[in-house]
Design a protein around this nucleic acid. Structure first.
Lengths: 214, 214
DNA sequence: GCCGAGGGTGAGCGAGCGCTTAGCGAGCTG
DNA sequence: CAGCTCGCTAAGCGCTCGCTCACCCTCGGC
């Protein structure tokens, strides 16, 4: 349909689909502010001034402050789901697909830490109906990872006692990257993605013995 | 020194050390409120009314709302550190000690989810000096876990490529339990602790092959 | 060149916030 | 029993919040 706006990395401009230019700038400003201070500690005046506009301009494009969070959360979850689906449906054995899913999911959480933080940690700030919608998306995220693990168990590649518990642990490990990852820290998103893919393969009993010595 | 107030489980009444009774009730009310709605979304009126007092009573025992969070955070981190130190300094090989540390740390995060949530996720709501103090405690937490993993690598029990990265992952896995654990869910804190201890042993290359089939 | 529409602003509303202050009543001291 | 302390409350101050409203530009269509 359109041209660029979707670079090789998934992080660059995932907000290209937000159509009026001013609305996108406001959304981007809100993501930054929510990630830095949290939803409740962010004021509409702060969002508007980051976007270079007056506080009233926000309400031309969004009904409430919560609608901003809802929009950010939905777009972010859809992106996360898309990343996992791509990895899950790629060719290759369960180990390859799981490693691919984990490393790309982690790269997204580390590289787009600003967005991921809002998406993963401000769920409770949404109202009941908005939260219900997002919870549905999260269930699909869970199902995608569980699917890969089930495949591996069926094929005998994985050795897992509690499939849903392990799924939860794998997702939890990836998601929490958004909390602790530091852009100025010693690790790049790619390095963390590779490390985590290795750790997760070990968790499901598919880590090659002696892999650490390579 | 004193008698009860410290039950077998570490969760029951860790606030026994908070001395005026009214101050403890306020602190407990604040923990509940912060865990449910987050620090910034919680009002001093809400805390006071949960404790059955007027809003002004809060300021007899605490200078500001932030002092409440600071106190909760310090006590919670000290408790977490104590749990890890106990496991770390117990007798036994690195695998035993790591499994013990992870399972008790996870049990604390799941069973005392209310407290753990505030302790682990409201760090950014603290002012600079208070945050600096808590960050120091967290460094000690990290050092405790890294110590066990280093022991295991030295003794050859563990097979770990990136010690600090793996330490971070192990801690992250445990801490994130406070985010997703549901008291009304299908798992008990003990079950999650046992599952996670197994997963972590696999992560460090110490999981007995075929353990899942037992 | 006038008009309507739509994106934007400045000023400000009602409400609720964190926190303060004046005073009250119970309980110990002399 | 007077006097003092101390835990607590009722009332409310000053401020900032999310959000609204009256109005103003700019620009395309006729």
């Amino acid at each position: 349909m359109s041209t660029a706006q979707e670079t090789a990395d998934g992080e660059a401009q995932p907000w290209g689909e937000v159509t009026p230019d001013a609305a996108r700038r406001l959304l981007l400003a809100a993501v930054e502010a929510f990630a830095e201070r949290g939803y409740h500690a962010t004021t509409t005046r702060d969002i508007a001034s980051r976007a270079g506009m007056s506080p009233a301009a926000l309400y031309i494009h969004y009904k409430t402050k919560e609608e901003l969070l809802h929009r950010i959360s939905r777009i972010g979850h859809e992106k996360a789901l898309e990343i996992l689906r791509t990895a899950s449906r790629a060719e290759g054995g369960p180990a390859e697909r799981l490693a691919d899913a984990v490393s790309s999911f982690v790269r997204w959480h580390a590289g787009g830490r600003t967005t991921a933080r809002v998406v993963q940690y401000e769920l409770d700030s949404l109202g009941p109906e908005a939260r219900a919608e997002i919870v549905g998306l999260r269930r699909q995220v869970n199902a995608e990872v569980r699917g890969i693990i089930e495949d591996g168990v069926r094929s005998g590649d994985f050795d897992v006692m509690d499939v849903q518990g392990t799924t939860l642990a794998v997702l939890s490990l990836c998601i929490d990257v958004a909390r602790w990852f530091n852009v100025n820290g010693p690790r790049t998103p790619e390095e963390v993605g590779a490390l985590y893919a290795d750790l997760v393969l070990r968790m499901v009993g598919a880590g090659e013995p002696g892999a650490a010595q390579r």
